[in-house]
Design a binder for these strands. Sequence first.
DNA 1: GCGGTGACTATCCGTTTGCATAGGGGGATG
DNA 2: CATCCCCCTATGCAAACGGATAGTCACCGC
Lengths: 201, 201
Amino acid sequence: MQKLLLADDHELVRETIADFLRLQGGFDVVTAQSFDEAISVARAKGPFELVMLDYSMPGMDALSGLARMRAQTGCPVAILSGTATPDVARRALSSGASGFLPKTLAPQSLVSAVRHMLSGEVYMPLEFLNNGETNETDVNLTPRERDVLLGITEGKSNKEIARDLDIQEVTVKLHVKTLSRKLGARNRTHAAMLGRDLGLM
Amino acid sequence: MQKLLLADDHELVRETIADFLRLQGGFDVVTAQSFDEAISVARAKGPFELVMLDYSMPGMDALSGLARMRAQTGCPVAILSGTATPDVARRALSSGASGFLPKTLAPQSLVSAVRHMLSGEVYMPLEFLNNGETNETDVNLTPRERDVLLGITEGKSNKEIARDLDIQEVTVKLHVKTLSRKLGARNRTHAAMLGRDLGLM
DNA sequence: GCGGTGACTATCCGTTTGCATAGGGGGATG
DNA sequence: CATCCCCCTATGCAAACGGATAGTCACCGC
């Protein structure tokens, strides 16, 4: 029987989906309620043939959890999301996710999606690509902040960014501080990662 | 009967695939031998339910042809490629392609892939994500360097990384320096971005 | 044994970040 | 006009980073 790992912090959602996969899909489903627990479970009760991670979940830290889980287990990892924006879906795939599962997915489609991923292909509903042009995530940076963030992602120093934008270095620092606060980043590097994950540039 | 548009400048490949889709899939396949012809055909003989474009083809201009075709037809557009690198595949999906079809795909898989895309989902073989190491760059980090790089991508300071790995901060700095040199990064932020782009963790 | 390599520690130094405080100008909106 | 918001600048300071140099220790292959 194929072993799946499902991690979601909402108990109702988690257990509903798990039960459905057990009954309708005949899978052996193990659950976890946080990213850290998922990592522990993956180590303790593995190997799994597919891991499904909720996108907004304690410890997930946007998409960096995806990379960590992939690195540890080496098995296909899918992203599960309720507040699904097309852009997040695309980025998930770019980061190596085996699939993107919106929670609005019809139950029967879920089973076929899981089978699809188990057979070594990528699952993703098309509507998450077509509508994808306007991706207003809840974060809204000012144009200047985006400029600075772009510079950060290119590994530039504040001084370089200042020269490129023809402003003073102190001003760059100001933007770095404010955009980091808006993104909930702990420093410029974190801001760069979150900015890329959220597709802000 | 579902109408498909297939554009490829190599006649043999184009007609072989087209015939196969007609016979085995029962599709109505129209062909074109350049991107510009594909655009004309799409306007003249449309609408189509799926368009397949060769990645390297006169007028395609890498992936910018994908966006133009999507904008004009509004229907799913897949990328067909012989010289398939995982990177191109990822970029294709990020640019809104409905699928990525390597020409090495088994014929029968091609039909199922087309059906998959017609049903509104995205097709992509997993090996183009998992093997996406893109080891052209031939970076080989030591295990410890990967640990440190992972910490950097999570926005941690050297001090935090040191505590987590139970080593001294100076040692972390050493690893940061060496892994940055290996990656060709200008600083830790740049290293984090390159590390994520190259899928090193 | 010997050389090579990975991992680690130490001290020192200049540069860069990060953060706080304290403003000025311009444009939009009420 | 008053009031935001965005953008810019300035000064100052503590912390973190980046780099150089100089080692120790353990492991592995020849």
